[in-house]
Nucleic acid binder design. Structure first.
Lengths: 344, 344
DNA sequence: CTGAAAGCGCTTACAG
DNA sequence: CTGAAAGCGCTTACAG
């Protein structure tokens, strides 16, 4: 393995000059730089990250924490983050809580250790206890939160307005004439106290009340934010009798699960039951799902850039909250309710 | 930030002893160890990874390369890998090729640099050019390949038998009496030369020939391994006229896309068209999809353990190929073809 | 623009 | 079982 000394010797300069030339610092003359680059190339030299981290104090890597990498939103956002980071020469350390409270605790516990291995951290929809927030905010490390989840004092945040997105979805159903609108969301079995479903439920109830309807707990069912979760919640809902004419699912994965169960039960979508979700999942167009689109990749990209800027430019990280727009995308899973059709 | 010197001073021992005590080496007496641990705890001391990597030569991190983290198989496998690695105290550096040839090239190009930042690497379904294989195999770094993708000389491998899995799916349809069996797979638009679809197509053709049928190119359509891809391929297939009585999709995501399009076209599943996939995706049960199940998390876990063992125990990495079993799971998306039904 | 030298914070023979 | 000391391979004031 070639070291910086080998390159210095071959190029006939000091290691300081090699270091400067290779990093593109401009206090190096053209000819010298050329000699160094040639020597480095000849030896196949690559600086040791451990050594430069120790000497330079920068790790050029970022920790990204997600609840579950298997869910569409996080996988899509992480993909964008990964690309942005690697293009900037940064490494991505992945931490997947996997819905385990133990993993969350370990993460907070390790915070002190984490800050020695990364230059910044990105928390996606990560729930934190009040005492954790202080620990995390107290790290000598810039950070950002993405999507809902606990805000961290002094950290910027990139997200959508979950209450508004949910209200938009619900208002769409109301405008079509639906009154018996169910909502599937949340995850009672989850060890971690996520908050996304709370905001979305609030938006649903807000829209109902605007329309003069009182939210009915019997029209609410909980399950994980997955296709299977949507199926379970819908099955539970149907089991209560008096089926809804429409279902607002807190995310597209749940909406797809709902559509599957409805059809297996012999109910047509949208003729018998309309379904709307939130996300604009890759598959939403394929299955004809009406949804409130949110820019997942864009949130990841933006968050990564926000973190990278102060790291690369040495500027201050400004704790701004960026709320990205959502948009209703009407496809084939929603229509006027049957009763209403009859009226015409 | 407390350093090892602070701890040594507070505990009244040398830094060498602190280092040994904290890492649990047993050449430290009980009382001394206790004093060191107390001092470290009091100071909130955590060893600097950069320093111990430089001094010790081990990074305690592993690079995991996936084609697309957004696809079910990779997200599920990575989740298992992440858990296994973190439980062993290893960090996971994520590299997502994102279907970009440039990313693959950069990865191989960076190989020399990569080996200085990780102790091992895991390549999931990563296609390599013949010349790349030598580069990768030549790294002074243990590695493992997971799922199909180019084998690397001297590296172990964890996978399923893709040809057999595809044959199982196809034979299931043949046994039900289907003769017009279409296959959707592959991805002509992908920049990267993946191989999974080739194996699965081979298994499909193998099973057809066993049954005395000649594979018909008109019954084959290509698209990405996603729900949307499955929809596109199925739409293309249907556009050719003479619809098949059954579709074998190369993965469950494609199968779900196929089911969506069939239903939108007014065709019932399975009454008019049977659909079978490969994976046993989280959502397969919810949508009633018959599939050949493969253990995605298990492959990730096993691959991580295989890599960890030699790293932790200092033993040799044995280049074994582990082929995990697959299993046909019959649900509601397959049945006897209509013509056959009439015969009864 | 370039170099000599200190220092980053650990681990590891080596000696006792 | 413990310590003094060298060394891992860089970066960065400082001086010129």
């Amino acid at each position: 393995m070639a070291t910086i000394d080998d390159v210095a010797r071959l190029a006939g300069v000091s290691t300081a000059t090699v270091s400067r030339a290779l990093r593109g610092l401009r206090e190096v003359s053209g000819p010298t730089r050329t000699r160094v680059l040639e020597a480095a190339a000849r030896l196949g030299y690559v600086a040791s990250p451990s050594a430069s981290r120790l000497a330079g104090g920068k790790t050029r890597s970022i920790a990204v924490v997600v609840p579950r990498i298997t869910r569409w939103f996080f996988a899509t956002a992480v993909e964008a983050v990964e690309r942005t980071l690697h293009e900037a020469g940064y490494d991505l350390l992945l931490y997947n809580l996997g819905g385990r409270e133990g993993a969350r605790r370990r993460l907070v516990h390790q915070a002190a250790s984490l800050h020695k291995r990364v230059d910044a951290m990105m928390l996606m929809a990560t729930p934190l206890q009040p005492e954790d927030i202080d620990v995390v905010a107290g790290l000598p490390l810039p950070g950002i939160t993405v999507s809902s989840g606990t805000p961290v004092t002094g950290w910027p945040s990139v997200r959508i307005d979950d209450v508004a997105a949910a209200a938009t979805a619900t208002r769409h159903l109301l405008a079509l004439g639906h009154r018996r609108i169910a909502h599937i969301s949340g995850d009672p079995t989850d060890e971690l106290p996520f908050t996304t479903h709370l905001d979305r439920r609030a938006g649903y109830e807000l829209a109902l009340r605007e329309a003069g309807l009182e939210p009915d707990p019997a029209r609410y069912a909980e399950a994980p934010f997955t296709i299977a979760g949507g199926s379970h919640a819908t099955t539970e809902l149907l089991g209560r009798g008096m089926p809804p004419t429409a279902i607002f699912a807190a995310c597209d994965e749940m909406a797809m699960g709902a559509m599957a169960v409805l059809r297996q039960t012999g109910l047509r979508v949208p003729e018998d039951v309309s379904v709307v979700g939130i996300d604009d999942h890759d598959a939403a167009a394929a299955v004809g799902l009406t949804t409130v689109a949110q820019p997942a990749a864009e949130q990841g990209r933006l968050a990564a850039r926000t973190l990278l800027e102060p790291l690369c430019l040495g500027t201050e990280l400004v704790p701004t909250t960026t709320v990205l727009p959502t948009m209703l995308v009407i496809r084939q899973s929603t229509s006027v309710p049957r009763a209403r059709e009859g009226e015409r």
